Computed example of a mutant assay.
Amino acid sequence: MHMVTVMQQGVWAVLLLPYLLTVSIPLDCREEQGSLSRCPSISQEKLLDRVIQHAELIYRVSEESCSLFEQMFIPFPLQLQRNQAGYACITKALPIPSSKGEIQQISDKWLLHSVLMLVQSWIEPLVYLQTSLDRYDAAPDMLLNKTKWVSEKLISLEQGVVVLIKKMLDEGMLTTTRSEQGLFQYDVQPEMLESVMRDYTLLSCFKKDAHKMETFLKLLKCRQTDLYNCA
Results as ranks from 00 to 15, higher is better:
residue 6 V to I: 09
residue 6 V to D: 00
residue 7 M to V: 04
residue 9 Q to T: 02
residue 16 L to H: 07
residue 21 L to Q: 12
residue 26 P to C: 00
residue 27 L to P: 01
residue 29 C to L: 10
residue 30 R to L: 15
residue 32 E to T: 14
residue 37 S to P: 06
residue 37 S to A: 13
residue 38 R to I: 05
residue 39 C to G: 01
residue 40 P to N: 02
residue 41 S to I: 06
residue 42 I to S: 13
residue 43 S to E: 15
residue 44 Q to T: 14
residue 48 L to F: 01
residue 49 D to V: 00
residue 51 V to D: 09
residue 52 I to F: 06
residue 54 H to D: 10
residue 56 E to P: 00
residue 57 L to E: 03
residue 58 I to H: 01
residue 59 Y to T: 07
residue 59 Y to L: 08
residue 61 V to L: 09
residue 64 E to G: 01
residue 64 E to T: 05
residue 65 S to D: 04
residue 66 C to R: 13
residue 67 S to K: 09
residue 68 L to V: 06
residue 72 M to E: 07
residue 72 M to Y: 04
residue 73 F to H: 03
residue 74 I to K: 02
residue 74 I to V: 10
residue 75 P to Y: 03
residue 78 L to M: 09
residue 79 Q to C: 02
residue 82 R to S: 08
residue 83 N to A: 10
residue 83 N to T: 07
residue 84 Q to F: 03
residue 84 Q to C: 02
residue 86 G to S: 03
residue 90 I to H: 10
residue 92 K to Q: 09
residue 94 L to N: 03
residue 95 P to D: 07
residue 100 K to P: 08
residue 105 Q to Y: 08
residue 106 I to V: 13
residue 107 S to L: 01
residue 108 D to S: 11
residue 109 K to V: 05
residue 110 W to H: 10
residue 112 L to D: 03
residue 114 S to I: 07
residue 117 M to P: 00
residue 124 E to P: 09
residue 125 P to F: 07
residue 127 V to N: 11
residue 127 V to M: 13
residue 129 L to W: 12
residue 130 Q to H: 04
residue 134 D to W: 11
residue 134 D to R: 14
residue 135 R to I: 08
residue 135 R to Y: 10
residue 139 A to F: 01
residue 142 M to D: 11
residue 145 N to P: 08
residue 147 T to K: 10
residue 148 K to G: 14
residue 148 K to F: 15
residue 150 V to F: 00
residue 151 S to W: 05
residue 152 E to Q: 15
residue 152 E to Y: 15
residue 155 I to Q: 15
residue 156 S to T: 14
residue 158 E to M: 14
residue 161 V to Y: 06
residue 162 V to P: 03
residue 165 I to N: 01
residue 166 K to W: 13
residue 167 K to E: 13
residue 168 M to T: 11
residue 168 M to H: 07
residue 171 E to L: 15
residue 174 L to M: 15
residue 174 L to F: 13
residue 175 T to P: 06
residue 178 R to S: 10
residue 178 R to E: 11
residue 180 E to P: 05
residue 181 Q to Y: 07
residue 182 G to M: 06
residue 186 Y to D: 04
residue 188 V to N: 12
residue 190 P to F: 03
residue 195 S to Q: 14
residue 195 S to V: 02
residue 195 S to M: 13
residue 197 M to S: 06
residue 197 M to Y: 05
residue 198 R to N: 09
residue 199 D to G: 01
residue 199 D to N: 14
residue 199 D to K: 03
residue 200 Y to K: 12
residue 202 L to H: 04
residue 202 L to S: 02
residue 205 C to L: 05
residue 207 K to M: 12
residue 207 K to Q: 15
residue 207 K to V: 03
residue 211 H to S: 11
residue 212 K to Y: 10
residue 212 K to A: 11
residue 213 M to Q: 11
residue 215 T to Y: 12
residue 218 K to L: 10
residue 218 K to C: 05
residue 218 K to D: 00
residue 219 L to T: 09
residue 220 L to Q: 00
residue 223 R to P: 13
residue 225 T to P: 01
residue 227 L to G: 04
residue 230 C to Y: 08
residue 230 C to D: 12
